[in-house]
């Protein structure tokens, strides 16, 4: 099976994530889209790991690391979102222009 099937699938998933990040207004929905993009990267890593079977398991191990980093990112990200909600009663990203010049 050509490896490019998996690569194009992950490019598609990554683009869907980009659309979500750019078009969504609710902060938690932006975090959901970021998860889609991280998954696209994981599919890529695992596909290359299957293609280069002789080169060891680096792809799968780094997919596990990406999952761990995603967990850390969601933890901190949601903490920030909840703090913003507590201070401003809103998580609408278009209203959060305090640091915009």
């Amino acid at each position: 099976m050509p490896v490019s099937f998996f690569l194009v699938l992950s490019a598609l998933l990554f683009s869907i994530g980009i659309y979500g990040v750019l078009a969504r207004q609710h902060a938690v929905l932006v975090l959901l889209s970021i998860e889609l993009m991280l998954n696209a990267v994981n599919i890529n890593l695992v596909a290359f790991s299957a293609m280069l079977q002789e080169a060891g398991l680096g792809g799968q191990v780094f997919a596990l690391f990406v999952i761990a980093v995603a967990a850390a990112e969601v933890g901190v990200g949601l903490a920030i979102v909840i703090l913003i909600y507590r201070n401003r009663q809103s998580v609408d990203l278009d209203e959060l222009d305090l640091m915009k010049w």
């Binding site: 099976m1 050509p2 490896v3 490019s4 690569l7 194009v8 596909a47 299957a50 293609m51 079977q53």
Partner: peptide
Amino acid sequence: LIGAFEGQEIN
């Protein structure tokens, strides 16, 4: 990606 990995197969 298609250009770079053309013809490479997953066994």
